[in-house]
Write a protein that binds this DNA or RNA. Sequence first.
DNA 1: GTGCCCTACTGTACCGATATAGAGAAGCGC
DNA 2: GCGCTTCTCTATATCGGTACAGTAGGGCAC
Lengths: 353, 353
Amino acid sequence: MGRRVTLQTIADRVGVSRMTVSNAFSKPDQLSTGLRREILAAAHDLGYVGPDPAARALARGTTGAVGIVLTSSLRFAFTDLVATSFFGAIAERLAPTGLALTLLTSADSGDIIPARDVAIDGALIYSCDPTSAAVDYLTRRRLPLVYVDQEPLETVTTINVADRHGARAAARHLLDLGHRRIGLLMSGMHPPHGLIDPADVTIDGYAAKQRLLGWCDVLGEAGITPLVARQPGANPEEPRAAARLLLDRPDRPTAVLCFSDATAHGVLRAAVDLGIDVPRDLSVVGFDDNPLAAQLRPALTTVHQDVEAKGKAAATALTRAIADARAGVAHVPQHHVLPAELVVRDSTAPPPR
Amino acid sequence: MGRRVTLQTIADRVGVSRMTVSNAFSKPDQLSTGLRREILAAAHDLGYVGPDPAARALARGTTGAVGIVLTSSLRFAFTDLVATSFFGAIAERLAPTGLALTLLTSADSGDIIPARDVAIDGALIYSCDPTSAAVDYLTRRRLPLVYVDQEPLETVTTINVADRHGARAAARHLLDLGHRRIGLLMSGMHPPHGLIDPADVTIDGYAAKQRLLGWCDVLGEAGITPLVARQPGANPEEPRAAARLLLDRPDRPTAVLCFSDATAHGVLRAAVDLGIDVPRDLSVVGFDDNPLAAQLRPALTTVHQDVEAKGKAAATALTRAIADARAGVAHVPQHHVLPAELVVRDSTAPPPR
DNA sequence: GTGCCCTACTGTACCGATATAGAGAAGCGC
DNA sequence: GCGCTTCTCTATATCGGTACAGTAGGGCAC
């Protein structure tokens, strides 16, 4: 059985040095056209496909792929419209650079840590526990990193959305309409679930925390104590159930601020179940302005974030960080904050009298 | 400036051979606990993070990542609910094996071909022109491959859905209800668009072809010539416009068979625009049974495919092919066909008289 | 005490490329 | 004819690991 075909095989066949064959593939301007043609022909003849990516990665020190680390349930990452739009924007932005995108899960248990074992040139850390083993490895490996929707860290480039600002605007909007009994509907995998004290909210994720803080900034100032419910987020039916914790009660809120459009959708459906008219009897505010928000009925008042721009910014920041690293230049961490703006549609109105 | 820390650095420090250090990380049972602890401590001390993935990939011949090749617009791949659910199912299935998933685009122009330059252990070929350069490289590299929703090829393991069968069921359902004037709404990026002859349909993708064939099998048998419209698929507004080509005419169809639930959604919205009642005045059948189909109003009659199972089957087939390759066993190509079944909901009824 | 196995570790030979410096020939100005 | 640059191509030294075949020493059976 013949050995595998490598550069050397071709070099021997053509009678040139291995380096020249390498150049024929990787640096065409380093050799004469004639010889190059001859080499490529011989390569084709021998069934050689091109330089082995793994060997090239070792020799060059670059792999041509960047990672994106996801902690939260994979099911969620691919079900959530906001997440998928974000991935799409990144992939699209990365395509012309030739970088592939590798999905790295960060299950914290076991010793399966792709982030440790897969070769990449840099990574995006997205909606991911920053203390996870995966992030730890990447950091210690000194790979170029960009944090997205994570607690800002001085030393790392971050991309964030003005969630707190947006949340404030949402809360203020309800106050301006005259609402005083206000419910908050949070999302999060870990207990406690159900009706809870705002102070007890175990926060999952930086964005969730910022949104809650934003609401409380405004409500607190107005002396309002909201009613808070919390639900595990992945399943579309769960928000609907959680919403009833807020709606099935005599002193039910006249308005609900939701962690996302998906949870808001659950509230709308629960309202239908209960015969509560939105916005006449109940105002609902979402978050994200995902593609469905405008199509819901009533169209959802929500806080818009530009996911497309977020993906673009993340991809650009990462490619820049990688370029800096390659050039040996010290990378100066940057901190982008993208706007989040209230979009008033048809799901909010003054409270019933 | 000190050199990078490698296994050798640690070996020198501890006074053992490099191989022993390697074993401390990769084969713990090959050395005594005490020595191992000492080595790991020294490694930690020196800031060594673990074996370099690129070097390991070269030495071991495996990378810990598999690719998924996507041709169709990336925007589409991340916008389409069917595609994203599929990715999710794959990622979830892959996670416990420790394999990461690398998204490989196959832009046919230029020499940016991640599939050629990124090291992977195997790949899924999904909704992708089988003649693309990316697929060609992967094939010639003799990487384990699995084709999903592609024209079956004897020599490669394939995963397909019984699209043609499902399409037949959909068409038969309309005939059974009594429909005779039937429209088809196809999706495809390439011209011609608009109202076209079924024979002129340039097919994009194997699935599209199978669906069209299935419809025509049944309609042809019944002596019915359908009215066919075609639209570029990515944008949610486009089906709505294309639908009007079928609906804005005196002899408008009493029923429309749609390439996907997304296009069916467009038809439903066009019907609303035109004041046409579904299903009283118009029956609409989708394809895929995506998560939204049941939530549309009226709930969509459609052809269900189990995307979750498709992802599972794809991931399993690929990991098996990779295992076979590693073991040096000849891989016997398998051809899975998953069921596609009609789900009758509220968007179909007998034609108006 | 001899033979044998087992454990723990070592030495050498790759894995398949690229970087970098430099050698030899050709072209050019003066 | 001399020196200089340009164009091609070569030689050597990595890149950072892992595989595999040993070797040395200790324990055990008989």
